[in-house]
Design a protein around this nucleic acid. Structure first.
Lengths: 224, 224
DNA sequence: GATTCGCGGCAAAGGACATCTAGCCGACGC
DNA sequence: GCGTCGGCTAGATGTCCTTTGCCGCGAATC
């Protein structure tokens, strides 16, 4: 899957330059001119990465708390020409992942983008592991201690989601939204039901207790 | 818990400078002079981060496949004085997470270290601490001196609330409102009951007196 | 195009366990 | 010394999770 990069660059020629090159290098690029537009796109499309000005970075982070259970979108700040150390440190304090001052070499920016994505986009990895469980995102196969496991789509998706970050507690809302695509959750038992079947299959395959319910919150996959 | 930083810096004065400053800023610093030593330490102690030369970074990554099940240790490369774009890109290709050319400002290096750790050490992220107690908001786990503690939802929520601001006194109204969602409080002993059980578990886990009642007002979590 | 099979969604029963309440007793304030 | 408040325990209550089974739909097969 391609990584989606939101490019919030006001300056037209730079924007077009980056848009073209990043597309050539295999990214889905979303260009945005105004801040308003960029914030909206970031919220709606959940890009894998945002390239932004220092100020927009701050506003992206401010907007987060409302959905703080989500992983924060990574941001690389394209700094001003005259930015000094103080400006850089400030940008990092506001939560950016990297700071690239202008003028920049495209090659280095690309390398830094890839470095950030390596860390922040588990979905771009092709293999997830948690204890004795391994999930191959390319072939959509799950294995327990190397033993293959046949899982229907939804059960696989659920397992893959949980495995993106073992130990982390995912809320039911999160899972229903991101695995099922439910926007509002009437109270449904669908998730419980699938978690149950997934758990049974994992247990039969020889995995210990791994899909764990957190009372009143959601589920977690144990890492060991 | 402190983050452990492996500092592989051959130049003595720089090494001592960084060692001192990083320790002041709350890191466990492991200094290493020779590459051989650094590789060994990285393998054995699994630090949260490595500061290294470009060459050592390569060797760290080469050594990885053997324990590929582990998350790769993040590396920040301290580049040479004369490094150009090509050198930087090469370092990123070899899998480093950031590249800081010399001469560098310590403040910026520190900011970059923190930015990398934010992404790579989930256990250091979104974490509240008060004395020997640590609360991980992502995994919903509480620990006393590193020893895990299994807490039911409400006890965990209560502890997390108190830990948002150690030493601060939270009134009972506040706690019942913000943890339980009670709007009006008939006199209920629910809070006392939970505080009691939470206190017992913390004591059993080896924490000193920490959940303290303020007579006629509410509760506080001690900071030390 | 009809049939079969499997999957996804849903509902109900059952059980587990956190939560709440009640009560006793000790501690603190006055 | 009295009244109030808090610590603690045990039992009742209720909620939530798990399990199981069924139904409808879609895909694959014939």
């Amino acid at each position: 899957m391609k990584a989606a990069v939101l490019l919030a660059e006001p300056e037209p020629s730079t924007r077009e330059f980056l848009q073209r090159h990043l597309a050539d290098d295999g990214f889905d690029v979303l260009g945005a001119e105004a801040e308003r537009e960029a914030l909206e796109l970031a919220e709606r499309l959940k890009p894998s990465l945002v390239l932004s000005s220092p100020d927009l970075c701050r506003r992206l982070r401010e907007g987060e708390p409302g959905r703080s259970w989500d992983r924060e979108v990574p941001v690389i700040v394209l700094g001003g020409t005259e930015a000094d150390t103080v400006d850089r440190v400030r940008a990092f304090d506001r939560g950016c992942d990297d700071y690239v001052p202008r003028p920049f070499h495209y090659d280095e920016l690309l390398a830094r983008i890839r470095a950030v994505l390596r860390r922040t986009s588990p979905s771009l990895r092709d293999r997830l592991e948690a204890g004795s469980i391994a999930v191959d995102l390319v072939t959509r196969r799950a294995t327990v201690r190397g033993r293959a496991l046949t899982l229907p789509a939804k059960e696989y998706d659920l397992l893959a989601k949980l495995a993106t970050e073992p130990e982390r507690v995912f809320t039911k809302e999160q899972l229903l939204r991101e695995v099922w695509g439910y926007l509002s959750l009437g109270r449904t038992r669908t998730l419980d039901s699938h978690a149950s079947r997934l758990r049974r299959k994992l247990r039969q395959a020889g995995a210990g207790p791994c899909v764990v319910n957190i009372w009143g919150v959601g589920y977690r996959l144990l890492g060991e």
